[in-house]
Every structure is written in C-alpha cells, then in structure tokens.
Design a protein around this nucleic acid. Sequence first.
DNA 1: GCGCTCTACTAGCGCGCTCTAGTTCGAGTA
DNA 2: TACTCGAACTAGAGCGCGCTAGTAGAGCGC
Lengths: 330, 330
Amino acid sequence: MADVAAKAGVSRALVSIIFRNQAGAGRETRERVLRVADEIGYRPDSAARLLARGRSRTLGVMFTVHQTFHTDLITGIYPEAERLGYDVLLSGATRGRSEAKAIEALLSHRCEAVILLGPDADPANLDALARRTVAVSVSRRVPQARVDFVHSAEGKGVRQAMDHLVELGHRRIVHIDGGRGPGSAERRRAYRAAMRRHGLEDEARVIPGHHTEESGVETGRLLLDERDAGRPLPTAVLAGNDRCAMGLLMALTRAGVDVPRDLSVVGYDDSHLSHLMPIGLTTVRQDALLMAEHAVRFAVERLEDKELQPREAVLDPKLVVRGTSGPVPG
Amino acid sequence: MADVAAKAGVSRALVSIIFRNQAGAGRETRERVLRVADEIGYRPDSAARLLARGRSRTLGVMFTVHQTFHTDLITGIYPEAERLGYDVLLSGATRGRSEAKAIEALLSHRCEAVILLGPDADPANLDALARRTVAVSVSRRVPQARVDFVHSAEGKGVRQAMDHLVELGHRRIVHIDGGRGPGSAERRRAYRAAMRRHGLEDEARVIPGHHTEESGVETGRLLLDERDAGRPLPTAVLAGNDRCAMGLLMALTRAGVDVPRDLSVVGYDDSHLSHLMPIGLTTVRQDALLMAEHAVRFAVERLEDKELQPREAVLDPKLVVRGTSGPVPG
DNA sequence: GCGCTCTACTAGCGCGCTCTAGTTCGAGTA
DNA sequence: TACTCGAACTAGAGCGCGCTAGTAGAGCGC
C-alpha cells in the first residue's frame, strides 16, 4: 500500500480511502491510484483491514457436505450475504470432521456470526457457542440455546402431503423416519396426527430411517422382503426427505414396482434432486432460497443491533405434486 | 491479551509465548496464565496473529456445490491439511456465483494457496491467478498456467471399462459426453480409441451431454425415443460420470428397460452415489482420497519451497464392477 | 568471589491497514 | 477584499499479536 501511495504520489490514507470506495478523493486521482495499484499487483490485505477496523463482516456457514438440501441453501446464502455487504465462509462437516471442529474453524477465522445448517450438536455446546457469538440454526430447533431459528412448518407440510395421499384413496401409508435428522421429530408427529385425523391410526407405521439414499434403499428392501413374506406393500410412502425417497424409488423401481401405479412416494425438501426423475418427485417444497435469506438476515440484523433477541422464522412449505403420486391401485 | 497479562502479572510477550505453546515459560506461570485467560474468556485473535507473523497457514478450496465428486474430494482434503498443520477454507461456485468470485473470496481471506476442484475458468485467468499464488487444479488440465495438476489417467480408466464391456460381448456401445466437464475430452478420445482398437469404429457414437443427472435423463429419453422410432437401443452406455449414469438409469428403469439385462451402464468417478443403487453402479473408481491428499501435498510443498516447480500427479483409476453391467442381451 | 551458562521473563518495534483530526487550497459570498 | 466553506488530501495513532534482542537472577564450577 505504501508502494502504491509513493508511486502515485499520494498518501497512504488516500489510497485507503480509494480502496474503500469512500468519498473524499478526486476522480482523476482515484483513477491514477487504481491504475498504479493494478500495475504493482496490489490487493488490500484483509487481515490487516480486519484488525484495523475491528470487524470482519464475514458470516460463517457450517454445513454437511453430502446433504443436497444444504447445497441448495448455500446457493441462497451467497447472494443475500453479498447484498448486505457480508462475506461468506464455508466449513463442512464430514465423516472424520465433526461439527464442533467445523464451527471452531469458522470462529478462528473471525466470522462474526455462524449459520448452522441442520446442526446435530449437543444443545449445551450450541448454547456455549451462542454466548460467544451470533448463531442461527436452520432446520433444527434448539430451545435450550440463544440462537435464531429458521425452519419450515413441518406439520403443515406433512399434513398437505397426507391429505393429498388420502384424497387419492390411500389408506396404507407408511412413513420413513429421519432419525435424528432436523425436522424428523416434527414430521413424525404430524404423520401420526394426520393418520389419526383421517381415522387411519390402525394403519399408521413409522419405519426408522435416516435422511440418506441408503436409508431409502434399505427400507425398499425391507418392504419387498415383507411382501415376499406375505405382507402387502403399503400403497403410499411418505419419506423422511428427498434423498431417502430417491433411494426408495431406486430400490422399488428396480424390483419392478411401478411408481405411482403400484405405490406412491412423497419426498420432503424439494431439493434439486426432485426434478431429476423423468416423472418428477412429488414432494413438500421447503423454499431453500427464502430460508437462506431469512437466516442471513437474522444473523446480520443481530450483528448490527446487539440488543435484538433471537427470532424464529417459520416458512410455509408447499406440496408440489409431480409424478410419483397417484391414485391407490385397484 | 493485555488484560490477561496484567491480571496474571506477566508481560504480554509471555502470554504470547504460552499461547503459541513455545518453550520459555515456567510450568507454574503457564498454568496461571491459561487459567486467567479462561476466566476472562480470552481467545487469540487470528487476524492479528496472521498480520504479525505474515502467514496464514490456510488453504483455500474452490468447488462446485452440486458436484458430488467434489464433496468426496473435500472429505479427503480436510484430514490431510490438518495433518500438515494447515487450515482449510471452502468457497463454493454456484449458479449466480462464478468461480472467479469464489476464488477472489479465498484470496481476500488470505489463503496462501488455492486448490481448484474441476475449475472451468478461462486459462488466461487461471494463469494470472497462478502468478499471484500457489494454485492446484484437480481434474482439469490447464497447460497454459503454472499450476499443479492432479488427475486420474482418464485413458486407462476408459480403456478398462471398454475392455470390460467388449469382453461381455457388447458392440453397440454409446458414450455420453461430459461437455466442457473436467476430463471429458480425454474420456471421449479414449472411448473412440477403444472402439477403434476393438474394430468397432462403425458403432462408435458420442452423444453430447454434461456431468449432471439431468443430462443422463435427457439422453435416456433420447435413446428411448429413437427406439420407438425403430433404431435399436445400444447394448451398453459409458456415461460421462456417475451423476449422468444415475440420471440415465432412472430414465431407463422407469421405462421398463432392465439394467443390466437389456442394457449395461458404466459410470465414472465412483462417487458415493455409486453404492446407492440396490445393485450398485459399475464405474471407474477415481480415488478421491488419494487425489485430495496429492492436491494438498502439492500446495503445501510449494508453499514451503518457493523454488519448486508445479508438478503433475496421475493416479491410476480402477474399474469397479458392480451390478449395472452384464453380458450382452440375447 | 568471579565469570559463566541457562532459564524465565520483558521492552518495544512492526505487520498493513482504518480512522480521527487535522491542513491546504480554490471557489463562492457579502 | 476578506471571509467562509467544502472538497481533496495528509499525519499519525492504534488495531492485537509475533518476534528479536535484551535483562534479571539462579545455579554452577573453580
């Protein structure tokens, strides 16, 4: 920076002003300085900038690398953060790299706030985190911690899906659980409630699972084995999420089960996977873009006004009927 | 830090020494300082630390959020970087956020080197980047730029796949191209060469596509339409990558085509998708872990020895035969 | 008692930037 | 002409740490 200043014949302060796009520099000088900087190959050093102004204007995002819905969220986080003048740093949790480690990395890189996508950490740890910094949880409610919370109204989504299936004449509707996955508990509860409301409690069945393709494949196998053992297939399955629905579809289709003629499948998320199948996956749309925007806004607003209390945003999901759901067979 | 020093009754320098785990502090003092720091809630400020020592020991990774193989690579990058004492920062390219922007973000966060996963940027830009910093390209060769390069021997992989198919009796083998995707050109060439080598040049057919599920679905539709118009289906398809193979499988299976009885499908990458299908995808395994390790090591070694020239690592891929390939029908 | 070494510690500069409180100068105003 | 005012620019402190060069004092052999 000193070099640029010297070569352009101005003070360092003016160079600083120009690079911050601040008023107070003549048009001509501005251009000259920028040209010189370009020649020298000067780029402002963010570490020093950070240190000097005491703020990083950076948001950290913790996500799980293999969750497709997270990548959809990230796609929405970037533009909204940029709009508000913030940088985004990503830190992935993988097998072999815990969420705690991922979060630690973000903090040590001076993120002012962290956005956690479907965190699975111990609530106590999250609370400790929330005391140190501004934190936003997406998809997972953590009542014990002072965090903002963005999610969709799981109950409403499941209810729409169930009403849709019942309207199509389905009664033997099975739910594949999402285990400890974010939103699973709510979805499970809503499934049970819907079955009860439609007078189908005797048919209600929750099969334990996860939010992964593997889980869908396994459940598919299980159902097929049961069929071979004499128990009829359900006529509809409400999967824990889209990935699970995908796995299930692959397993069933592979075995000659025609979806939706023989069996209907409904997913959850409307991640970009849903459009892939030639017939399209009927699923409950969580608006990733909108969720991302809320998460970013919550974080930023709490950064700018420290008195603000953590908030909760509940977005209405919407059933998207595509090709994997149809009238009950027969 | 000054507070800690004051409260513990020592100098700031000693606190610094203790927090860097350096020799030169008494055991007793060390404990006292750490205790005091904990009470105050002091955490070393990485921006200042960075500024003072002039090195960040941070690697930046640019990836495409929706590419499953990239997430596999990331899973391998983290542990290797940690082993070598480096931090990792992720920056994703998405629709609406170009690679250039993603890379810019990494640099401005003071990454000492950038690892680019399947970069699709203009070679000239990459070269400009390579002059500014240490850069490693994974999967995509950029001969014009001073970057390290890690890839698998596409030719060998394709050859193994083709030999496998020909051994099974296939002759009408189609290749779905990966467009501008990394490795596509090499795979296409190797496909053509293999067809020629087996005396099948008349049967050779390259269908333009991309490294996405959508592309697989589209190609599936195309092939089915052609079949309905009287042109026989190929007996085997070599897809551009696993995602493409997945899309193809969904489209075909959906239409009642039995894989592998009626048609064999071979993917490329062995991303975690490959294990999902009940029968498993026959694919060419690129060892993501090993590729990740090489990429990290190249970057780090060039950082520690500035004289080092960019290098190239070619890893041998390996055909993994699973359930989607079988003898030619009839 | 002396010089020597070794451990434990400290003073203070500098990393590259931002920001406050100025100074300079030319144009506008009474 | 004398004064004000705003735009353009500058000096220099300070952000929180790392590091070099140094000091104080204890322990040791002779």
